[in-house]
């Protein structure tokens, strides 16, 4: 990637940014958040969780409730409308102009900025080449595929060298295969540009792959902020645990420094009483009857190629999902024993 594409890494700070829409409940509880310069932060959550509202507040398409402030670096941009914030934005529906060609779409922001024509043409061409769109320069938008449109939207947002790149569910409208390849492309682009990026999605796979940090949101509140690993392995609560990946819940009791689950007693530090344990499917291992902790029978086995996902019904308690080797020959009705590694178990009181 040429040096001229490296963009300034501007940090973003949100201070007490809440949003209440007229005649409805509060869409966003007051939020404090610092996004580091050059960081890619992903807002993740189900629809209506406030993630898009947060993005629109950063963009300048919504203003926060009184008292909230948005800062780009040291500059307070709260009062500036989007057209004066110098942000790049990619919309879920792309928002490309149907009355213009691909090149005209990309040139639009440069024209607004009154760049001289030769400079404009050079930068449009450069950007189209970077996004592998060179041959489509003269096409109309309705002659492009979904993936091509998405790349035009990215090119159009980036060519003006924005301070911040904002992406609102940019891959949702595409089919799965295209989504994967575009996700890689976006990842490469964001790393290469060094731009501060805010990405909104409801797809945890996208969030894990793209985010330096993920902000998990629910009902207008932040449920957890952390790196993808933190979110996955140390979910702050049951909601985050369930929303990210698959999580098993196991009931157990703690007595005198020992945790009792199934037939086993494991060393455990924690207060006495009943606990709910969270375990990932890959952290439950098949074992022999002698060193197994929980017995059960296979209710379903789904072959996924690289692994086989088993649903095991223990003697008591809810069904457990267990990931095992793809070559496993286990099938419905087989009796199995499971081992729990206490180091990989999370307790929710």
């Amino acid at each position: 990637m040429p040096d001229s594409f490296h963009l300034d890494a501007v940090p973003i700070r949100l201070e007490r940014c809440g949003k209440t829409f007229a005649g409805s409940a509060r869409a966003l509880e007051p939020l404090d958040l610092t996004i580091r310069g050059g960081e890619t932060i992903v807002f993740l959550g189900p629809s209506g969780c406030g993630k898009t509202t947060t993005l629109r507040i950063i963009a300048g398409l919504e203003s926060p409730d009184p008292g909230g402030r948005v800062l780009f670096g040291e500059e307070d941009v709260t009062a500036l409308p989007i057209e004066r914030r110098n942000v790049g934005m990619v919309f879920q529906s792309y928002a490309l102009f149907p009355n213009m060609t691909v090149a005209e779409n990309v040139a639009y922001g440069l024209k607004v900025r009154k760049l001289p024509r030769p400079e404009r043409a050079r930068r449009v061409e450069e950007m189209l080449d970077l996004m592998h769109l060179g041959e489509f320069a003269g096409r109309r938008i309705d002659q492009l595929s979904g993936g091509q449109r998405q790349r035009v939207a990215l090119a159009r947002a980036l060519v003006v060298r924005p301070r911040v790149l904002l992406l609102d569910e940019p891959l949702t409208a595409l089919d799965a295969k295209l989504r994967d390849s575009l996700r890689l492309e976006i990842d490469r682009l964001l790393r290469g540009l060094g731009i501060t990026a805010v990405y909104v999605t409801h797809d945890q796979g996208e969030a894990m792959a793209l985010g330096d940090r993920i902000v998990v949101m629910a009902k207008g509140r932040v449920a957890q902020i952390g790196t993808p690993r933190e979110i996955y392995y140390q979910p702050a609560d049951g909601f985050v645990a369930d929303f990210i990946g698959t999580m098993n819940r196991l009931g157990g009791t703690v007595r005198g420094g020992m945790l009792n689950i199934g037939t086993a007693s494991l060393p455990w530090s924690g207060a006495d009483g009943a606990v709910e344990l969270l375990v990932r499917p890959e952290d439950l291992a098949l074992a022999s009857e002698d060193d197994g902790h929980l017995g059960g029978s296979v209710a379903a086995a789904v072959f996924l190629g690289d692994r086989t996902r088993l649903v095991v019904e223990p003697t008591d308690g809810p069904a457990l999902t267990v990931d095992t080797l793809g070559r496993s020959e286990l099938g419905r009705g087989d009796r199995v024993w499971l081992r729990v590694d206490p180091a990989r178990v999370l307790a929710v009181p």
Binding site: L61, P81, I82, E83, V87, G109, V112, R156, A157
Partner: peptide, 19 residues
């Protein structure tokens, strides 16, 4: 047409209302 989003797109690129 999705006029609102088209306009938001133009605004994000720096275009004021008249433009």
């Amino acid at each position: 047409i999705d006029l609102t989003t088209l306009e938001e797109g133009a605004a994000s690129l720096g275009a004021g209302f008249l433009r």
